[in-house]
Design a binder for these strands. Structure first.
Lengths: 127, 127
DNA sequence: CCTTGCCTTGACGCCGACGACAAGGTCTAG
DNA sequence: CTAGACCTTGTCGTCGGCGTCAAGGCAAGG
């Protein structure tokens, strides 16, 4: 399988696959003419990477999952390092959610006060 | 008031104030030697900007609030344009919170399944 | 032979709010 | 006179995951 085919099957671009390779996540043999040749297993790897990036992981966070797949596991999640990253990410996500909740409450307060102020300054009739 | 003093009083840097000025948010006269001279009102403007940026606004989102302060209002929130931005931002924040909630649930699922898999593959004694 | 369509490496662009540094002018105190 | 503490404009660097050329090699069909 050449890079174009893998890209299409994984729903991404050749550029992206070379980028992953440059960062040590995806591997390829080379054919005589220098083309990258991938075997079927890489498709799963690439899909794992894409799935995790979509969820907000960085490339570094993804490494343990790829290693886990390469170690022969059916899922990239089952290795200790992957589990650690999952736990850490959940904590991070929780922190962001809390922060955004606070932001949301503050914005809501500002909004209601602004509207109250306008009612006060320039009252509506028939209210 | 020179730029250094305003920066300190607003809890930021001269570089940042020049940046805001370059983007049309903060204004200054110039003294004979070319130095920026700010009057007291700019302190409130800068603090408004900082407060909104801290909450995740972009510079463009901040403009209506600055204009509102410049129009003589006690708060930057009370003008129609500001209210619109507030409403829009709340919607945006809600969307992100929802998205993160879904992500959190997915990660939690992955985590519990990974742990379950490990129990199954390599069961603990005395359990 | 030539075009078309793959592939290769290399390098710059993007987004946003600045930080950091360069090279220089200004003002003041000792 | 000079040091040092301000100020000025201008430019490049940051972070991440790529997109988008640029310039060229390789394979196959008409």
């Amino acid at each position: 399988m050449l890079i174009g085919e893998l890209a299409e099957r994984a729903g991404t671009s050749p550029r992206t696959l070379r980028y992953y390779e440059a960062h040590g996540l995806v591997r390829a043999r080379r054919s005589a003419n220098g083309y990258r040749v991938y075997d079927e297993a890489e498709l799963r790897v690439v899909r794992e990477i894409r799935a995790l990036l979509d969820v907000g992981f960085g490339l570094d966070d993804v490494r343990p999952f790829v290693a886990c797949l390469r170690a022969g596991n059916t899922s990239g999640d089952v290795c200790p390092d992957s589990v650690l990253v999952l736990r850490r990410k959940i904590v991070e996500v929780d922190a962001v959610i809390d922060r955004l909740g606070a932001v949301r409450r503050q914005l809501h307060t500002q909004l209601t006060q602004a509207i109250a102020h306008r009612e006060e300054t320039c009252p509506r009739r028939r209210t």
